[in-house]
């Protein structure tokens, strides 16, 4: 007799649990306001990334096309993947001394794992993270970038 009642209570509890489950999906079905999907290409205009977002490594330039990198190479040493190559150049300053400046700061985006060590360890805070996140390109060579803009120079007093 006991198993007889158990049979029916099993059915009852089973159906009840199924109805509870259906109430969840049913409720979401009738509340389209809770949809969380973002319409990506349409919302591109007002898509705001967080300020710390690590999209790519960039070299910070000010309005006068000047940066703070003196080509010391600490970022290159700190990079675990070898995705940064610093090519320094020597120029003769106004006082006649030759000094070390950056010729090309090459950054291989395809090899970067965004660990942030280059940005953190830069002694003169020359590097930062950009907000760009649409990195897809058709040609892998386009992922190799030169970070210092052409014609840029170092801010006085940083070196």
């Amino acid at each position: 007799m006991n198993s007889f009642f158990k049979y029916f209570s099993d059915i009852f509890h089973g159906v009840k649990s199924l109805l509870i489950g259906m109430s969840v999906t049913g409720r979401y079905f009738f509340s389209p306001g809770q949809i969380v999907t973002q319409q990506y290409p349409e919302n591109r205009k007002n898509l705001q990334m967080f300020e710390r977002f690590k999209g790519e490594v960039i070299m910070l330039h000010d309005g006068n096309n000047q940066h703070r990198c003196n080509g010391c190479g600490i970022c290159e040493n700190n990079c675990p993947n070898g995705s940064i190559e610093v090519i320094p150049a020597k120029i003769t300053g106004e006082d006649g001394k030759s000094k070390r400046v950056i010729d090309k700061h090459i950054y291989h985006l395809g090899m970067c794992t965004f660990c942030g060590l280059c940005v953190k360890n830069c002694p003169s805070n020359a590097l930062g993270f950009g907000q760009e996140f649409e990195h897809a390109v058709f040609d892998r060579s386009k992922l190799t970038k030169v970070l210092n803009q052409p014609g840029s120079s170092i801010i006085k007093g940083v070196e």
């Binding site: 999906t25 049913g26 979401y28 809770q34 949809i35 969380v36 999907t37 319409q39």
Partner: peptide, 13 residues
């Protein structure tokens, strides 16, 4: 569409 709405999505659009 139905499954998308049940899953808080918009489905094919």
């Amino acid at each position: 569409k139905v499954c998308a709405f049940m899953q808080n999505r918009v489905g094919p659009n």
